[in-house]
Design a binder for these strands. Structure first.
Length: 319
DNA sequence: ATCTACACCTGACCGC
DNA sequence: TGCGGTCAGGTGTAGA
């Protein structure tokens, strides 16, 4: 399933292939992918056709395409938001490529010059947890509450953000990430720490897999009350989150020089680098390295599976 | 106000 | 072979 590193890989691929391209012949094959576009299919198509891609931006697992009119470079206050959900893919193909099984939305993308061939942007989504919608943008503030300068060329520092995404926190790979805000949320809540990691308004981009991996690295039990973490543990946990996702981005973000942007959750990282997630009843790699008998167990938490080591992630004592 | 539970989806898999 | 049940999980929101 696409998580932050995969979404960043898609963002980069879309930006590289589509900057300057104009939407033509937008076709919505399944309106359920437009669940979050309340004005419906026709409004979506009419608004998107004729608009030109000016930038592709990401926060957490959301990405959005900043648009202009076709004959202008001025960015419009409405952007195309894409969320891949559990099974979404953003593909770039030749227009004549054979249709994909779960194709939901397609658009012919016309390049700015005469010398290049049009491309097709395809939104493919088996389970339809993801979707697309058009949304007005508001201006971002950075970690200390100041407006990010307009015209900033840092992708993550773009001042525009769709209003539907503005409530989520920045992610650990964002240079404006609000570390103090994260510490305050950890100190100020008694919920299990994993619940906080999955709360996108505290820190974004972390899903079930990376939550378990970060907790394993930080040697913390998922149900540990957030407010009981020491300052050092909080710092260590945030470092673990950042490291896990940065390494996954490095491992999974290669092999995209073809005319093809793909997200299918099969980054190399998932196959090689997982220490806890999905490894029920296997030895804990850290314990095994020093001859201890800690093993990974799978337990239900928050209506999903959590994986932890029986030795280095002990259950917190009730008090 | 804060937190929890559930709806939204499809396909793979399992036991009968 | 088929059929019903279970599981996977991010997000928004209804309800506690």
């Amino acid at each position: 399933m696409p998580e932050l590193p995969e979404v960043e890989t898609v963002r980069e691929g879309l930006a590289r292939h589509l900057l300057g391209h104009t939407f033509r012949e937008v076709q919505v094959l399944d309106e359920r992918s437009l669940r979050r576009h309340p004005r419906g299919r026709k409004d979506f198509v009419d608004r998107l056709q004729g608009r030109t891609v000016r930038d592709v931006v990401r926060r957490g697992k959301y990405l959005w395409i900043l648009l202009s009119a076709a004959d202008s470079a001025e960015i419009l206050p409405e952007s195309l938001v894409v969320h891949l959900g559990m099974s979404g893919q953003a593909l770039i193909t030749a227009p004549e490529a054979s249709p994909h099984r779960h194709l939901r939305v397609r658009a012919l993308m016309v390049p700015p010059g005469q010398d290049k061939e049009p491309l097709e942007l395809r939104f493919v989504d088996q389970r339809i947890f993801g979707g697309m919608f058009l949304d007005r943008t508001v201006l971002t503030r950075d970690a200390v509450g100041q407006l990010v300068p307009a015209g900033s060329r840092s992708l993550l520092g773009r001042p525009e953000i769709p209003s539907a995404v503005a409530h989520i926190a920045r992610d650990p790979l964002d240079p404006f990430f609000d570390t103090d805000g994260f510490r305050r949320r950890v100190r100020g809540s008694a919920v299990g720490i994993k619940r906080l990691l999955l709360d996108q308004s505290t820190v974004s981009g972390i899903g079930n897999i990376y939550a378990d991996e970060a907790l394993w690295r930080a040697r913390l039990h998922y149900a540990r009350p957030s407010s009981s973490l020491s300052a050092a543990q909080t710092r260590g946990l945030l470092e673990a989150c950042t490291a896990v996702m940065a390494e996954a981005l490095t491992a999974g973000g290669t092999s995209f020089d073809a005319l093809y942007v793909n997200v299918n959750g099969e980054s190399g990282y998932f196959e090689r680098g997982l220490n806890a997630y999905g490894r029920a009843e296997k030895p804990c790699p850290r314990c095994a390295a020093v001859g201890r008998t800690g093993r990974i167990v799978r337990e239900p938490f928050m209506n999903r599976s959590s994986y932890r080591c029986t030795f280095c992630q002990r259950r917190p004592s009730a008090r």
